[in-house]
Design a protein around this nucleic acid. Structure first.
Lengths: 235, 235
DNA sequence: ATCACCTAGTGATCTAATCAATTCCACGCC
DNA sequence: GGCGTGGAATTGATTAGATCACTAGGTGAT
């Protein structure tokens, strides 16, 4: 996205924009159904493969979903500003540290906001992920790493700031495998869980400073573990 | 991107992944040329329109660029984790405040990092945007808002953290028009410029606290202006 | 050396057909 | 009457083939 770019746009690009505008005019929400590919092609006076190219663009952004045999639907990302790149390379070394340090920069103030706002739904969702994590711990369920991702996403949503929520969502999801590996390297799931508990308690108590500190400390611990491991693996 | 999603993938989706892997195998950098669409289709044993659909997906992410009459090239976003959604809705009201508050959360620590790191190239680029902004001010060049965007992007890059740089880049670019309107509503370009100057001076001086404070104050000022304007326009 | 023109290569779009998945409806059985 | 199954219709997915539009490189003329 180049602000001053005046290069010629393809028809597929124009059509993608046109479809998004149609979604907006029809006030369709995520999950809502659009016209069929063939009807959209007729509507915009183009061939079906051309409309398909446009829809593939939108599909890549999660703005639409094409269901074989069913139709075209509005995707969850239609209102989003920031997206994860599903083709992002696996982060290692310094890039992985960058990721964690970025999270350590962004997530503590998010936790403080969540403690300040104390939205009942946000808090409920947070507590829910904690319950799920506890169950995974008890049952030695390897889905724990997924539940941990959900915890961080829920925390960001509990901040009440949609842009920050999208940012954390994007970072956490696009590097889900890395997060999985990080939990493995951490080696102490119970301690990780306890740190999440401490963060939630601070949010529930409305203690913004404690929430900030707990989150910062939690992510610092993670960074330290990964740093030590990286140094180890490079000898 | 749903971590646990096991639904059937389309061929276009598989091909998109295949092309990205090819880019990686061939160690192509942004700007590097891939095989032609027809050759790629042959290589992956699919029809040309199917390969085109896959490439449209990748084009939407900025991972490839299709140049009419020339060929297929690797795009700038090939290594990125976080992307702006070019079809994002224009933010207004509370969503716009969310955007600004997100920036106020993320950018002050970024400025502090930039002051700590004090990378010569980063600082040079920052100073460059300041010179450009000064020129725009002097000549009453309306491109000032673009240069201001560049300032914030350069600041994020000067932090040395690639993930944070991508996040700021995404936020700032996807909502470029809103930023333009914000500068207009601000009404005092010279003051805005002076605040940017103060931030850069702090970075150059290696004063992390001052950089943090100056950035925080700058964005708080912007938020206050927009808040007052929003309250005004809703009566 | 530079500019203009032409050709070949390559992306862009179209037409038309067939294949594959989903949904809906009708019929039969319990 | 309700439920289950099968088939038809609808809709997305992919293919094959053709034509159009743009770019890059090479050659010839000035």
């Amino acid at each position: 996205m180049n602000v001053g770019d005046v290069s010629r746009r393809t028809l597929a690009d124009e059509l993608a924009t046109g479809v998004v505008e149609l979604i907006r005019e029809q006030r369709l929400e995520p999950g809502g159904q659009l016209d069929t590919v063939r009807t959209l092609a007729t509507r915009f006076s183009v061939a079906v493969p051309t409309m398909r190219e446009a829809l593939r663009r939108l599909e890549a952004m999660g703005v639409v979903v094409l269901r074989h045999g069913s139709g075209v639907y509005v995707g969850e990302n239609v209102g989003r500003s920031v997206l994860p790149n599903p083709h992002s390379p696996i982060l290692t070394g310094e890039r992985l540290i960058d990721l964690l340090e970025a999270r350590r920069t962004i997530e503590p103030p998010i936790a403080a906001m969540a403690a300040t706002v104390r939205d009942p739904d946000g808090v409920a969702r947070l507590t829910e992920t904690l319950d799920e994590a506890e169950q995974c711990l008890r049952l030695h369920d390897e889905r724990l790493w997924i539940v941990n991702l959900e915890f961080h996403r829920a925390l960001a949503q509990a901040s009440g700031n949609t842009v920050l929520a999208e940012v954390v969502d994007s970072i956490v999801l696009v590097h889900a495998q890395e997060q999985r590996e990080i939990l493995r390297l951490h080696g102490d799931e119970s301690e990780d869980f306890a740190e999440h508990q401490r963060i939630i308690r601070a949010v529930v108590d409305g203690s913004a400073d404690e929430a900030f500190g707990a989150t910062h400390e939690h992510l610092t611990n993670v960074i330290d573990v990964i740093r030590a491991r990286n140094l180890g693996s490079e000898h």
